[in-house]
């Protein structure tokens, strides 16, 4: 019997990158097929932030004008926070499919295959979650626009896309790392549950720093979510440049450029820090 992979023409001619691409697309294709047949994740991922947007927006609808920085209405203020929260929550769940594959033995099935790079398993998850978070965020942005909270145009839209992409990549890296480090899905769900809301409340998503007690203001000013929220809020509020100050933190002014730099650094740092773990688990 002759093996099809050992000496086939496709093996001889195909480059390593083409094989990584083939693997990654096949693995992410599986996740998209699951989503298509069980769209609950997508729907719930849109519904939850939508409820937040509507209920929280209504709760503070009668807040006195001028209370918020820049004279924003609360609806305008909240939109940026909820958009970031949507992307963050989606990305935080990135590790769940991987964890289930570990637990049920499907990962072993993948690892027996001669993958050109086992990182394609991680890459496929990142691709899937980024797309899913993108769709969910767009749905929330659309709803916010319908509610009269505006829609970023031109370079503003690009900034929103970059910010969300960096945040999703960073949190996806974290979640995938946890999926390989923790013993089971119960533990992973517990971490997701514990991390999700406190990180939201300890950020500038729902209230500005000036509303917070000093200790919480410090926490919120160091929270990576705030570094994603404020640039988007600035985009919704005008046409900021790289040097525009988007956050008056207790430790000093933070510009749009600094926020993007922090998010890029965080994404890079998280992916670098999970590499040894991935090498150990997948190598």
């Amino acid at each position: 019997m002759t093996g099809l992979t050992a000496n086939s023409p496709s093996d001889a001619s195909a480059s390593a990158w083409a094989e990584v691409l083939q693997e990654t697309l096949a693995l992410s294709g599986r996740l998209f097929l699951q989503l298509q047949r069980r769209p609950t994740t997508l729907v719930a991922g849109v519904l939850q932030p939508l409820i937040w947007l509507v209920l929280f927006g209504a709760l503070f609808q009668r807040a006195p004008e001028g209370l918020l920085p820049g004279g924003l209405s609360y609806g305008h203020f909240l939109s940026a926070g909820i958009i970031v929260f949507t992307a963050f929550s989606g990305a935080l769940n990135a590790g769940l499919p991987v964890m289930f594959d570990r637990e049920f033995g499907f990962l072993n099935r993948l690892l027996v295959a001669p993958l050109r790079s086992r990182y394609s398993i991680v890459l496929a998850s990142a691709l899937y979650i980024t797309s899913l978070s993108g769709v969910q965020s767009l749905a929330i942005m659309g709803t916010a626009a319908v509610m009269g909270n505006g829609w970023p145009v031109g370079s503003g839209l690009v900034v929103v896309a970059i910010v969300l992409l960096l945040l999703v990549l960073a949190v996806t890296g974290l979640s995938l790392g946890l999926a390989f480090a923790l013993p089971g899905h119960i533990e992973l769900l517990a971490v997701i549950f514990v991390a999700n809301l406190p990180l939201l409340f300890a950020s500038t998503a729902l209230a500005p720093l000036s509303f917070m007690p000093p200790w919480l203001a410090w926490l919120a000013a160091l929270n990576p979510l705030s570094f994603a929220i404020e640039p988007i809020r600035a985009v919704y509020n005008g046409s900021p440049t790289w040097s525009t100050v988007v956050l008056e933190a207790p430790y000093g002014a933070v510009t749009m450029g600094a926020c993007l730099l922090v998010l890029s650094g965080l994404a890079g740092l998280l992916f670098l820090s999970i590499r040894p773990l991935l090498r150990r688990k997948l190598g």
Partner: peptide, 22 residues
């Protein structure tokens, strides 16, 4: 080894084909 319950057998085989670079 687990099967993906949501995928059909044919889809599983095509996934494996891609992982073996066929």
């Amino acid at each position: 080894a687990a099967l993906d319950k949501i995928l059909s057998g044919r889809e599983m085989l095509h996934l494996h084909g891609a992982l073996y670079h066929l």
